[in-house]
Amino acid sequence: MSLHTKPILEVDQVKKYFPIKSGFLKRTVANVQAVENVSVDVMEGETLGIVGESGCGKSTFGRTILGLESLTDGSIKFRGEEIGGLSDRQLKKYKKEMQMIFQDPYASLNPRRRIGDALEEAFIIHTNLRKTERKQRVKELLVEVGLKEEHAERYPHEFSGGQRQRIGIARAVSLNPSLIVCDEAVSALDVSVQAQIIQLLKELQQSHQLTYLFISHDLGVVKHISDRVLVMYLGATAELAPAGQLFSNPLHPYTQALLSAIPRPVVGRKKERIRLKGELPNASNYPSGCPFHTRCPLAHERCRQEKPVWREVEKGHFVACHEV
């Protein structure tokens, strides 16, 4: 890990609440606490996997970092400069540096625009290139992500899911960003295509020195691609560790339950499955103390009252649990 020592992104105590408004005067009656006090440093050149079940706030976290959702509280620093709470105009120069790959390759491309025009748009917004230069760059991009130059003239519906995701990736890398948030980037694809796309992402990481924030619910994929893994539960961070360490020695009871849910193809080696009771609590009625206490097999009185501290138990291994 000596390579990844300089933080590119420092996230400190980030909160994102969505107000629930009701009544004639649209008074805020409650908040959905989508992201609750997340602090994490993302190192230059690494791939940070973010896992958690549906609705745990991992996508919202990714969008908040990119400024697509306004920040409720906390600080986000990109290369040491504060970017949390900036207006769209102020954010524009950072948008070149931070891009996103979206989950649904069918929904993330405008159906009425040709691929070439869609890719060209990034250059129109951020550069002063002339039209012929832009067209040239678009062609290079298409080739770089494994498509053909003439695909620029086609419409999105003429492509398969995997090809569309390649277009989405081309759009994300077009401005040579340093950080890319992959929001469930391979979840909508079938397994063989997933492997190709992951391979492409890895190649691009090499050639462009990219840092990835890889958001996924697929633990297998995350294990394969990530240097470090962050486990989120109900908007809060549960555990953060280098990928190998997390998968071999999970400390947080939630991580343990999550990992025990991975299907094991090995015959005869049965590992006991930790079954969580109950449902994910409603984020608009946030549990007191440790957010996981309602479902945790180890929960006791202290967990109900006191929020566990986010602390480093081994080098590079953080966990928020009273029991560890």
Binding site: A107, S108, N110, E121, L175
Partner: peptide
């Protein structure tokens, strides 16, 4: 999602409205 994608590219509101929403 493609509108979100344009926002993350840094496209202005006018561009999004005229070039992406209106044609659809």
């Amino acid at each position: 999602e493609y509108i979100m994608a344009m926002k993350s590219l840094g496209a202005g509101n006018l561009r999004i409205l005229v070039k992406h929403i209106l044609p659809n």
